[in-house]
Amino acid sequence: IRCIGVSNRDFVEGMSGGTWVDVVLEHGGCVTVMAQDKPTVDIELVTTTVSNMAEVRSYCYEASISDMASDSRCPTQGEAYLDKQSDTQYVCKRTLVDRGWGNGCGLFGKGSLVTCAKFTCSKKMTGKSIQPENLEYRIMLSVHGSQHSGMIVNDTGYETDENRAKVEVTPNSPRAEATLGGFGSLGLDCEPRTGLDFSDLYYLTMNNKHWLVHKEWFHDIPLPWHAGADTGTPHWNNKEALVEFKDAHAKRQTVVVLGSQEGAVHTALAGALEAEMDGAKGKLFSGHLKCRLKMDKLRLKGVSYSLCTAAFTFTKVPAETLHGTVTVEVQYAGTDGPCKIPVQMAVDMQTLTPVGRLITANPVITESTENSKMMLELDPPFGDSYIVIGVGDKKITHHWHRSGSTIGKAFEATVRGAKRMAVLGDTAWDFGSVGGVFNSLGKGIHQIFGAAFKSLFGGMSWFSQILIGTLLVWLGLNTKNGSISLTCLALGGVMIFLSTAVSA
């Protein structure tokens, strides 16, 4: 259960009878995928790494000078000259100064003066180019299975845990398959586009800190620079940016070097996208990844198990997540596992009318040892309800109150669905055939309105939902006002479609 501690969480529900669903994975976010007769899966884009970055340009932001020398000439005696002028490691300046009897010249006039100092770069920052084909995306998957609280967001041991898996995709191999043991396998067909235009970005490294910066900004930095990788004795261009020549006297000129420019660069980098280094690879934390999940090989585990009949206890007080759902960790005293956990939410304890829904599909106890633990997640209705676990006299209950409203949740879900469709863009549509167009249209309606429909009408039977949709269509056909007619027709059509397409 990876997503319960992530604030940016998206719930995606598969269409009834569908074998695939489109998701948008982004750094700092987590996606929970639910479908009829399929286990619930949490998917998170953990890291995006980039390798084989080529150094484009380096800037010196802290330097020192040494070996200063000057040469001067009297008027009419030609130009002052130093051998160091031809050495690229030196920074030199030529000027004219007033000369006369007082400073060793027989004539009054302008004399030539040249001053040089050896330039040494102490600290530099480097910009590297990123090729999209060198990106690698690491995705962690977790099935809502027989897990306890100690396994949440624990990325170790996934090789031997059938509840978890790690997959890596690249532009050259965008397809992967996550093996989930008894739950089958989940196929991923990803489109490795981060949403960032790397043709316009460089990877900047300064003092063990890293950013993504725009090329134009990078090339306009007014500091000494050299092109390409460091060859040991780089040729620094624009050395004068960190060196200041003071007022010249008759035979000498003082040279000083400016202080470190790291603070000024940090100020200019305010708002830039931060990154990290992992050995020789860069780690990015921006952008998104679009994936199509193929769920035809994914299956529920323990459908044929019998119900657990022994007593359950709450190991922890049920807690609310950031998303309005409830996490419950229970301990089973029996030894008759594997068995299914009898769990439901009810409005009252007399009729036990089921409300809400299970995020953890078909929760089971897989071990036959005593005191096995299991964590599950529920989506309670707004208002008061009861969490009921167990059967008969051994069942345990917990009162729950959820604040908020169904309308607010439906609106929030619609906005999130619209954002998801905007990110998917043209990849969500198939114009290759008439059937493809209608299929894409259905998927689009489901992406945007599916979660809201589930919130508003999830407790009704599909037949009642179709009746309401048919009534809206009838009202649309018999209303003389054009805008009201079109609105009723659209709402009725969407409702009829979703009542037959969205899983219960």
Rank of each mutant, 00 (worst) to 15 (best):
E191L: 04
S304T: 15
A275C: 00
G271R: 12
V114L: 15
M151I: 08
N478S: 11
K110M: 10
L289P: 02
S372A: 15
R99D: 08
D42Y: 09
N103T: 04
S372E: 04
T233Y: 14
V415Q: 11
L223T: 09
N237I: 11
M206K: 11
S129T: 09
C105Y: 11
M53E: 03
A35V: 06
T315L: 11
A176T: 06
A35D: 05
M53C: 11
L477W: 07
P381I: 03
E136S: 15
H446P: 10
G459I: 02
S485F: 12
T95M: 11
G432H: 15
G17I: 03
Q36A: 10
N371P: 01
E159G: 13
I221L: 14
I396D: 01
K395W: 06
T414W: 10
L273K: 08
P380S: 12
K166H: 01
G287F: 03
L96I: 09
V114Q: 04
D379T: 02
Q131T: 14
C60A: 02
T267G: 02
S146H: 14
C190Q: 09
F314T: 04
N439R: 10
F463G: 09
G476P: 03
N481H: 12
Q465H: 11
L196I: 15
S433T: 15
V41W: 06
I445H: 07
N481D: 14
C190K: 10
T194K: 15
S499V: 03
K290W: 10
F449L: 06
G435H: 10
A117R: 00
S405E: 03
G432K: 01
Y61E: 06
R57P: 02
D426S: 11
V41M: 12
D384R: 02
A69V: 15
K443Y: 11
V97H: 05
G228C: 05
N103M: 09
F183Y: 11
S368W: 15
V91M: 11
P234I: 04
M349N: 00
R420E: 07
T126M: 10
E274D: 14
V328W: 05
S58L: 00
N52M: 08
S70C: 10
R193H: 11
S304I: 00
Q331K: 12
L201D: 00
S142Y: 03
F183L: 09
L358P: 12
C116S: 07
K340G: 04
D379Q: 05
A63Q: 09
L477N: 08
Q447L: 04
A452K: 09
I387N: 13
V256H: 07
G279R: 09
V46Y: 07
I445W: 11
R252M: 05
I359E: 06
T470S: 06
A268D: 03
M421V: 14
K395H: 07
H214I: 06
G432L: 00
G404E: 03
L196R: 01
G450L: 01
A504V: 13
S461M: 11
V46C: 06
R299T: 06
K340L: 01
A227K: 03
F314Y: 07
C339E: 08
A361E: 04
K480L: 03
L467T: 10
Y158G: 12
V6M: 08
L491Y: 12
A346Q: 00
D247I: 03
Y81T: 15
S455F: 12
H398S: 00
E26W: 11
M495K: 10
V364E: 00
I130R: 01
D67G: 10
N478Q: 15
R57H: 04
F11G: 03
G436W: 02
I407R: 01
T406N: 14
K340C: 07
Y202M: 13
V50K: 04
G150P: 01
K38Q: 07
M15H: 04
V494G: 00
G492V: 00
K283T: 15
M206I: 14
V213A: 12
Q350L: 12
G17M: 10
V243L: 14
V326T: 04
G356S: 01
H266A: 12
A346Y: 13
F108C: 11
A333Q: 01
V256A: 04
L322R: 03
N439K: 15
F497W: 12
S199T: 15
K118Y: 02
G444L: 11
F497N: 12
R99Q: 08
E13V: 10
N207T: 14
S58G: 14
G271A: 05
A178K: 08
E133Y: 09
G425M: 10
G302M: 11
D42R: 01
T427G: 13
P224I: 08
H323T: 07
V169G: 00
A229C: 01
D393R: 00
G302P: 00
K93P: 00
V23I: 15
N163E: 04
L358G: 01
V303D: 00
L322D: 05
T267S: 09
V502H: 11
G356M: 08
K124S: 12
Q85A: 04
K110A: 03
M277E: 04
D426M: 12
S485A: 14
V97Q: 08
G14V: 10
R175G: 13
T254H: 10
E177G: 12
T397E: 09
G109T: 01
R402E: 04
Y59L: 02
K110W: 11
L293N: 03
H214D: 10
D220L: 03
Q331L: 04
G232E: 12
M68A: 09
P171D: 05
K316E: 13
F449T: 10
T40E: 06
F245Y: 12
Y61C: 12
T179S: 06
I445F: 05
A451G: 03
D430L: 00
P132F: 09
K110N: 09
T325F: 10
T205Q: 12
K84T: 04
R357I: 05
G259K: 07
K454I: 13
A178Y: 05
V415M: 15
V23Q: 08
L204S: 03
T254I: 15
G182D: 13
M375I: 06
A452P: 01
